[in-house]
Design a protein around this nucleic acid. Structure first.
Lengths: 98, 98
DNA sequence: TTCAATACCTTGCAATGCAAAGTATATTTT
DNA sequence: AAAATATACTTTGCATTGCAAGGTATTGAA
């Protein structure tokens, strides 16, 4: 059911703060959206390749370095479009489910 | 973006009345959810094979006979589950987008 | 030095949405 | 009657997506 919405969720999370993959998974889990690594990593790479995200490496005191992702201007524009698309879909379901 | 939600939409429409494919497409279009035949027919067949839908043939005065689909008990149960899943997803997005 | 924890990445499969083309039935036009 | 048009259902092949499973690499603890 949540297929196709994950991309939107990632942009929502990164709009608030930059984050690395494990932190994103934790935040999704907190919102009851279970996502696994094998889903998230390719998705982040796709969004990076589309110019929606950037990343920087940061050393960690608890293991290997982390890849912190953040939104680009294009990513913020895309997020804005997806806000509208999401709103339209919620309205569409409301209309159908009466 | 609407990927994976189509199955839910079909159940919503058929919960109100039985319908054949072209009528379903029209109703989706009215709710701003564009779907084409190549998407809908395989989806209806899948839901039929899952036991969510039944169909009956009905003659038409304007062309070939039509396949009217309706919900089974299992389909109604599935719709109820998807109502909850949809509500959970709307809540999840709300939580992420603040 | 071996083990455990953390983090990133890849491969292969199944499911989904869709463009495009195909088949079949009924009505209208020539 | 034959051809064209409208309606309706179906199939094929492709691109994308989600995920299970397994792999690589770094760090600190046993």
């Amino acid at each position: 059911m949540r297929k196709g919405v994950l991309e939107y969720c990632i942009l929502c999370i990164l709009a608030k703060r930059e984050a690395y993959a494990s932190a994103i998974i934790e935040e999704l889990k907190a919102a009851n959206m279970i996502v696994v690594e094998g889903t998230l990593y390719p998705l982040l790479i796709r969004q990076k390749n589309q110019g929606l995200l950037n990343y920087r490496w940061e050393e960690s005191t608890q293991g290997p370095p982390r890849k912190y992702y953040c939104l680009t201007d294009k990513g913020r524009a895309q997020l804005s479009e997806m806000d509208n698309a999401w709103k339209d879909m919620v309205d569409a379901i409301s209309a159908l489910r009466q």
